[in-house]
Amino acid sequence: MNYIPLSGLSLRDIEYVVAVDDLRNFSRAAERCGVSQGGLSEQVRKLESLLGVVLFERTRRHVTVTPDGARLIAMGRNVLAAARAMIEAARARTGPLEGVVRMGIIATLGPYYVPDLLPLLRRAYPQLKLQLTDSLTDTMLRMLRHDELDVVFAALPVSGEGLQYAPLFREPFLAAFPASHPLARRKALAMPDLRGPDLLLLEDGHCLRDQALALCGMSSRRDPSRLATSLEMLWHMIGAGEGYSLIPRLALRHRGEWDGLITVTPLPGAGRTIGLVWRTSDPRGPAFDEFARFLRENPPEGCTSADAPPPPHDGTHIQPA
Rank of each mutant, 00 (worst) to 15 (best):
residue 133 T to P: 05
residue 200 L to H: 04
residue 231 L to D: 13
residue 99 G to A: 08
residue 29 A to Y: 10
residue 103 M to W: 15
residue 140 M to D: 06
residue 217 G to P: 07
residue 101 V to Q: 03
residue 95 G to I: 10
residue 178 P to Y: 04
residue 235 W to R: 10
residue 227 L to Y: 03
residue 113 Y to L: 15
residue 107 A to K: 10
residue 147 D to S: 07
residue 36 S to G: 14
residue 278 W to N: 03
residue 76 G to Q: 11
residue 74 A to P: 11
residue 164 Q to M: 10
residue 173 F to P: 08
residue 81 A to R: 11
residue 135 S to M: 14
residue 104 G to N: 11
residue 257 E to V: 05
residue 137 T to Y: 05
residue 303 C to S: 09
residue 122 R to K: 10
residue 218 M to V: 13
residue 26 F to C: 02
residue 188 A to S: 14
residue 301 E to W: 15
residue 95 G to F: 13
residue 282 D to S: 05
residue 162 G to Q: 11
residue 169 F to H: 09
residue 49 S to C: 08
residue 150 D to K: 02
residue 100 V to Q: 15
residue 163 L to W: 01
residue 56 F to V: 06
residue 80 L to Q: 11
residue 205 G to I: 02
residue 249 R to F: 06
residue 316 T to Q: 11
residue 272 R to V: 13
residue 11 L to S: 01
residue 49 S to N: 08
residue 154 A to C: 01
residue 141 L to V: 03
residue 78 N to V: 06
residue 314 D to R: 05
residue 185 R to M: 11
residue 320 P to F: 00
residue 29 A to N: 08
residue 176 A to G: 08
residue 311 P to T: 09
residue 38 G to K: 02
residue 187 K to L: 14
residue 285 G to E: 14
residue 49 S to Q: 13
residue 281 S to Q: 09
residue 109 L to K: 06
residue 311 P to D: 12
residue 125 Y to V: 12
residue 38 G to A: 09
residue 81 A to S: 07
residue 191 M to Q: 08
residue 260 G to H: 07
residue 36 S to V: 04
residue 196 G to F: 01
residue 288 F to D: 02
residue 126 P to V: 13
residue 208 L to H: 15
residue 301 E to A: 15
residue 235 W to P: 01
residue 77 R to S: 07
residue 235 W to A: 06
residue 25 N to D: 15
residue 85 A to I: 08
residue 195 R to S: 09
residue 250 L to S: 07
residue 5 P to N: 09
residue 121 L to E: 13
residue 16 Y to G: 01
residue 89 A to D: 11
residue 274 I to L: 03
residue 271 G to D: 00
residue 275 G to N: 05
residue 114 V to Q: 14
residue 166 A to T: 01
residue 80 L to T: 03
residue 41 S to L: 11
residue 151 V to M: 12
residue 13 D to M: 13
